[in-house]
Design a protein around this nucleic acid. Structure first.
Lengths: 134, 134
DNA sequence: CTGTCTGCAAATGGTTTGCACCATA
DNA sequence: TATGGTGCAAACCATTTGCAGACAG
């Protein structure tokens, strides 16, 4: 059941959320696991996955699962677009305000009940651009 | 190497592309495999994957890998947005023209070399809406 | 106390890959 | 006939899950 009142506030959950929010980057589950483990050496990767999934279901964090690579997680709540590097998989926030997509009146679109959208730009990140230039 | 002149025109590849283009839906690799097997019972799933990957690298088809579910493939070449059902994973083309995203002047955006974008709407498809209503 | 959560490890499942044979150009 | 492609099956690997003990409320 997805209801924040039914869930306990475990130390693992707190640390996972805290460390995710400290990061400007959008780590993978494994990446965040490595970071969290510095504070909680005994935590398991399964717990990290379970909490990231739960927090994203609750709308507390955002799971970025465009593309074929591993999912990445974003501790920011407000909607914003993303920019993904096709070479290394890195994900950054798109600069500036999100593109305005007028979804008004589209709640029933082709028989679909539209809930939202995701917009992702893809390209080559600065580091990979430099690597290519060499 | 990704160069159409270096690739042979095998019967398997022809049939895979042909069947994909017949479909209005956007099948998964396994779904297309089931269809292709009606014409080529001995074809393997690995061959379907290899050809879909190659064709999408060549730009002949489009691999839709938003979301966490299985990848889906689209035989249509022109850009269009997609509409994905969050319940059953079904993917349809978004009706009407694609939203105009003025990417001009954004080739160097936050240090990124922007190559393109993908826009996906998510919601509940007609069939799943009906299922819920019962 | 009760039911959720955790650590651990094994299972899952879509996708990829090694290999020996086949077939296209 | 040289080389890319295929069928088969095993390998991969991110993610999920079963379980018994731990802990929050």
């Amino acid at each position: 059941m997805i209801n924040s009142e039914l869930h306990r506030n475990t130390r693992q959950r707190q640390v996972i959320l805290e460390e995710l929010r400290k990061l400007k980057t959008h780590p993978t589950a494994a990446g965040l696991y490595a970071i969290v483990r510095r504070r909680m050496p005994k935590i398991s990767l399964g717990t990290v996955y379970r909490n990231l999934e739960l927090l994203s279901q609750l709308g507390t964090i955002w799971k970025l699962e465009f593309g074929s690579d591993e999912a990445r997680y974003d501790g920011t709540v407000e909607y914003h677009d993303h920019l993904r590097c096709v070479r290394c998989g890195r994900v950054d926030d798109a600069p500036g305000p999100p593109l305005a997509l007028t979804e008004g009146g589209k709640e029933d679109w082709g028989g679909y009940k539209v809930l939202g959208h995701r917009l992702e730009f893809f390209g080559v990140c600065p580091k990979c651009c430099r690597r290519q230039a060499k």
